[in-house]
Design a protein around this nucleic acid. Structure first.
Length: 262
DNA sequence: CGCGACCTGCAT
DNA sequence: ATGCAGGTCGCG
C-alpha cells in the first residue's frame, strides 16, 4: 500500500522503533532480497546505531551513526510489521532487530521491495517531495515545460515530483478537474497551481485517513476512500458523470470525462 | 516512448 | 487458466 501517505506512516513507525537504538541483527529471508542486501552487508549492520529515519518520496532512509544509509523502498506491496513473539508471518522478507529486543519486519508478499545500503547521493534523480513546502507551482511548470507526455504520466515520474503513485495521480487530477490525457506542457500556470494544491490536499487527506484508521482493515476505512480510483462505471460524486478507465503507460487511469476539463 | 521483467496473490 | 495489482528499471 505504498504511496507517499502510506510510506510517511510507515516511516513514523520505523522512527519510533529504531531511532536511537542499535541494530543487533538484520536477517534476510528471501533470495530476491538477498540480491539487494547480500549477507555481508546485512552482517555489517550489526552494532550500527540509527540516528534518524527520513522519507523522501516513497523511499525511507535509515541514517546510521557510521554515515551509511540503509534505504528501504516498499515498491508495490511492502509494509512494516511489528511481529510479536513466535513464528514470523510467511511474507516477512527482512527482519531488523534492535538492542531493546524490538523487531521491525519488512512484510511483502510480492517480494519486490528493496532494502539496501545505498551510496550517498543516491536519489539525486528524485524530484522535490510532493509535500515539501518549498515546492512551488513554478518549479512544477519548469519541470513540465518540455514534456508532452500526458499529465498523469508526468505525475508518476519521480524525477518531476516525488511521492505520487498511480492512485493519487488519478485522485489529484480529479480534484483539480484536469483531464489526465492533457500533455503536461500544455497546462497553464494557474492550472498547475491548482494541481499542486490538489496534490497536497489529496495526500494530506490520505495521511489523515491513515492515522484515523491506523491498523484497521474495516469497510469503514475503505468507504469513500477514492473519488475515482478503481471506480470504473460508477458515478462521479461531484457531477454524477460516469467514471472512465483508460490505460496510460501500461497503467490504469481513472477519471470523470464530464467534469475533468476538455 | 511502450513494454517486459522483477515476484506473488487474488479475483474472474 | 488468465489477467491484474498502490513501483521502478532497463530494453528495444
Amino acid at each position: 500500500m505504498p504511496e507517499l501517505p502510506e510510506v510517511e506512516l510507515a516511516a513514523a513507525i520505523a522512527r519510533r522503533v529504531a531511532v536511537g537504538r542499535t541494530i543487533t541483527s538484520v536477517t534476510v529471508r528471501h533470495p530476491a532480497q538477498r540480491r539487494a542486501l547480500p549477507a555481508r552487508d546485512a552482517r555489517s549492520l550489526r552494532g550500527e546505531r540509527v540516528i534518524a529515519v527520513e522519507r523522501r518520496g516513497k523511499a525511507q532512509h535509515f541514517r546510521l551513526a557510521s554515515g551509511r544509509d540503509l534505504c528501504v523502498h516498499f515498491r508495490m506491496t511492502g509494509d512494516w510489521l511489528l511481529p510479536g513473539p513466535g513464528p514470523l508471518p510467511p511474507a516477512v522478507r527482512v527482519v531488523i532487530t534492535l538492542d531493546d529486543g524490538a523487531r521491525l519486519a519488512l512484510d511483502d508478499p510480492r517480494a519486490l521491495s528493496v532494502v539496501s545500503l545505498c551510496a550517498p547521493g543516491t536519489g539525486a534523480s528524485l524530484g522535490p517531495d510532493a509535500l515539501d513546502p518549498a515546492l512551488t507551482a513554478g518549479h512544477l511548470a519548469q519541470a513540465l515545460a518540455s514534456r508532452r507526455i500526458p499529465i498523469k504520466v508526468a505525475l508518476l515520474n519521480q524525477a518531476v515530483i516525488a511521492g505520487i503513485g498511480n492512485i493519487y495521480a488519478s485522485e489529484a487530477l480529479w480534484r483539480a478537474r484536469i483531464d489526465p490525457r492533457i500533455p503536461a506542457k500544455r497546462i497553464p500556470p494557474a492550472r498547475l497551481a491548482d494541481l499542486l494544491r490538489a496534490i497536497r490536499a489529496t495526500l494530506n487527506a490520505a495521511l489523515r485517513r491513515q492515522e484515523r484508521y491506523f491498523g484497521q482493515n474495516s469497510a469503514a476505512a475503505d468507504a469513500g476512500r477514492f473519488a475515482v480510483y478503481d471506480r470504473e462505471g460508477e458515478r462521479c460524486r461531484r457531477c454524477g458523470g460516469r467514471i472512465k478507465r483508460i490505460t496510460q503507460a501500461a497503467r490504469s487511469t481513472y477519471f470523470c470525462d464530464k467534469c475533468q476539463g476538455r
